[in-house]
Amino acid sequence: MEIIKGIPLTSYILLCSILFSIGAIGVLYRRNALVIFMCIELMLNSSNLLLVAFSRYFSDTNAQVFVFFIMAVAAAEVSVGLAILMMVYRNTKTTDIDALNKLKF
């Protein structure tokens, strides 16, 4: 299982860039607030994967601890975010993100 002999680090950078861009496309493309949350998870995930790849290629344990903390923050973020989403749904009866345009210029 010597992955770092066969796969250059550039492949991982490419993969994570593509995944991050797909997440960004999703945030811009969709109007359902729930799917936008999922796309944010996708972007967090790609950065996590890149941190793990760097930690493996540079033999550094600290990056994996950071990934652990990022996962903790993501879990907390999702719980609060979904509570906010429920609140929005209760008040507007939709999960359409464009229903919340009162602060828009």
Partner: peptide, 29 residues
């Protein structure tokens, strides 16, 4: 989104990864 991906790839493609250690330790994870 495609432009963002293009910028990321173009910026990171030519990165020099000189510091990769030869004696990498497989047990760090």
């Amino acid at each position: 989104g495609c432009i963002l991906g293009l910028v990321l790839v173009a910026a990171l493609r030519e990165t020099e990864m000189s510091a990769i250690s030869e004696y990498s330790n497989p047990g760090i994870g």
